[in-house]
Design a protein around this nucleic acid. Structure first.
Length: 587
RNA sequence: UGGCCUGUGGUGCAACUGGCAGCACGUCUGACUCUGGAUCAGAAGGUUCCAGGUUCGAGUCCUGGCAGGCCAGCCA
């Protein structure tokens, strides 16, 4: 499977010029100027403190796609610098999800924590260069000294300690001589900078915590700003792509690397050695999708409070959720490509994602018949006990998909929605006295409507025209509708879970003052239907199998599914013109 | 009375770096159809945030506004 490059769908010579996004332009400019030779090396650097979501998928697609397009390399690197928030479970899920999305990091599955030793050495170097110092201010004092957005900060009273004292103190911090929070190592930059990140940022904090990979080897841990650029540098990353909120951090990212490089030389001669790699940080707008939330904090809350079935609930915007729902990696990648990448903070309509899913599944999902809300139909003139195996096309979009047999018998189920006793205008389906086609089978005409005491329609008595076997009338007469159906005798029972947007509001973060964002959860985001009837070919389908239920949508066998107890998730509905008409008529 | 970033049809992005504002999604028509699916053909929809300026010519350059985003964790 090829990764969609920028020229995909536009490959004929002389076609419109390739339209590059701003990051591709930077990469191509660099390739042209030889800034990195012919190297392009990107990375995806998640913190293992949650599951990947569609926003991460955008980032992975971007980063891996760039490496792929330009013959470069891509690393998967865990940014695991905070032992108290990170867990092995998340590491495993992230690896699985990134791989499923199609990214390939070869043997470069990396961990920022593996560089702790090197980072420590460089920190010592900055101390020796007089560019970092040990500060004894408390967290609260540090905050006060930092100043405000509009006013400068004050210098720490510990700012001018001697190099010797700083070296001694920092070494003892590392040895664990001091309690958590008692001291920090800070960069000596500028307490009056308009960029707060440059007001002597903390490089190391003391944390006597167990690290998921380093165990108890460390009791000082590097801060993101100090660590991240170094991780990129160590790995030889050329383009360090991140989201917009790190824009203000770029000057610091650059400052740290420049500070290390100060006094260093290209050939390594001199007291400090060889210059280190200085990647270019580039920021883009994170993905915001309508009708969902993306923050790890909120997703965690939904899981913990059991508003959903878990991180992989089909309603979640997580990669695992989308996978369970039946989305394909190809669809997600196509979506990422469709929305592009820019610096404008925009909100993408979730309908675009659904469009990509439909488009992909339309090409690859085999068609089957399944009745969600069964209505019994008895074909009065069809011989009792007779069963015919009729030919059905598996996928009209794929001639290699073949055909299958579908059993037809006297008693059937059709969809309740496909019958109206009193059909409104433009309703083409079955109604008293009306003739329709049963897909791949016969024309039937509704003769009698059977109701229970409460007046509910419980059964339809119909007749069929034997001459229309296979679905065509030899006399050329037409019907306005074709219905899906299932033989009552041969149907397989199934549970079907219908999914809709997780939130009713387009923007669930826009919640009225004093109200909880979770009040905006869509109470109908999941509808569980039992007693659904599907065609026998579906018996024993494995979890993850994807189908189109004709006229209804795409469905995926859920992981809860077992032999003898089929469970389907509705991935996405088919485009439904009738639903649109009906809605419009109502309005 | 802070700094940085960003404003282009309803939505998401383009516009070869100053030369007739395009593409996709969505919407609406129509054709075709054994899925009201798919497919095909077409249409509507723009004061390029605003106001000045430079220029033969500005979405693009300059100045000044306005609006939105991010930043005062020993989180990332």
């Amino acid at each position: 499977m090829t990764w969609p490059g920028p020229e995909a769908g536009n490959s004929d010579a002389g076609a419109a010029p390739r339209r590059l996004n701003f990051i591709e332009q930077i990469v191509e400019d660099d390739l042209r100027s030889g800034k990195w030779g012919d190297r392009v090396h990107t990375r995806f650097p998640p913190e293992p403190n949650g599951y990947l979501h569609i926003g991460h998928a955008k980032s992975i697609t971007l980063n891996y796609g760039l490496a792929e397009q330009y013959g470069g390399k891509f690393n998967l690197r865990f940014d695991d610098t905070n032992p108290v928030k990170e867990e092995e479970e998340y590491v495993q899920s992230i690896i699985a999800d990134a791989r499923w999305l199609g990214a390939d990091w070869e043997d470069r599955l990396l961990y920022g924590s593996d560089y702790f030793g090197q980072m420590y050495e460089w920190a010592l170097e900055l101390v020796r260069k007089g560019k970092a110092y040990v500060c004894d201010l408390t967290a609260e004092e540090t905050r006060q000294y930092r100043g405000t957005l509009t006013g400068p900060g004050r210098e720490s009273p510990y700012r001018n300690r001697s190099v010797e004292e700083n070296l001694d103190l920092f070494e003892r911090m590392r040895k664990g001589e001091f309690p958590d929070g008692s001291r920090t190592l800070r960069a000596k930059i500028d307490m009056a900078s308009a960029n707060l990140n440059l007001r002597d940022p903390v490089m190391y904090r003391i944390l006597h915590a167990h690290h998921h990979r380093q165990g108890d080897a460390w009791c000082i841990y590097p801060m993101y700003d100090w660590a991240h650029g170094l991780e990129d540098s160590i790995e030889g990353i050329t383009h360090s792509i991140c989201t917009l909120e790190f824009e203000n951090h770029r000057p610091l990212y650059d400052w740290f690397i420049d500070a290390i490089n100060e006094g260093r030389t290209e050939d390594g001669s001199g007291p400090w050695g060889r210059r280190i790699c200085h990647p270019q940080q580039i920021e883009f707008a994170r993905l915001i999708l309508t009708h969902t939330v993306m923050s790890k904090r909120k997703l965690l809350e939904l899981v913990r409070e059991r508003h959903v079935r878990g991180w992989d609930d089909p309603r979640m915007p997580t990669v695992s959720g989308m996978r369970r729902r039946g989305y394909t990696p190809e669809a997600i990648r196509a979506f990422a490509k469709m929305i592009g990448v820019a610096k404008f903070n925009s909100t993408v309509d979730v309908g675009k994602l659904e469009y990509c899913v439909r488009e992909d599944l339309n090409r690859r999902a085999n068609r089957v018949m399944g009745v969600l809300r069964p209505l019994k139909v008895v074909i009065e003139n069809y011989p009792e006990g007779q069963v015919e195996e009729l030919d059905a096309v598996n996928n009209p979009e794929d001639s290699t998909a073949g055909t299958r047999k579908v059993p037809f018998s006297r008693e059937l189920y059709i969809e309740q929605d496909d019958f109206r006793e009193d059909p409104p205008k433009k309703f083409f389906r079955l109604a008293p006295g009306r003739e329709v086609r049963l897909r791949y089978a016969y024309f039937i005409t509704c003769q009698t409507v059977v109701k229970d005491a409460a007046g509910n329609v419980t059964e339809l008595r119909c007749t069929y025209d034997p001459a229309t076997r296979g679905g065509d009338a030899p006399d050329g007469r037409k019907v306005k509708a074709t219905l899906h159906w299932v033989s009552a005798a041969r149907a397989v029972d199934a549970e079907v879970r219908l999914y809709d947007h997780l939130f009713t509001a387009e923007d669930p973060s826009d919640v009225p003052e004093g109200r909880d964002w979770k009040e905006l959860l869509n109470p109908e985001s999941e509808t569980v239907l039992t007693g659904c009837k599907v065609e026998p070919s579906l018996d024993g389908s494995a979890p993850g199998s994807r189908y189109q239920f004709e006229r209804q949508g795409y469905f995926c066998v859920d992981s809860d599914s077992q032999v003898g107890r089929l469970v389907f998730n509705r991935t996405v509905t088919l485009k439904d013109t009738w639903a649109k008409i009906e809605q419009r008529e109502k309005a």
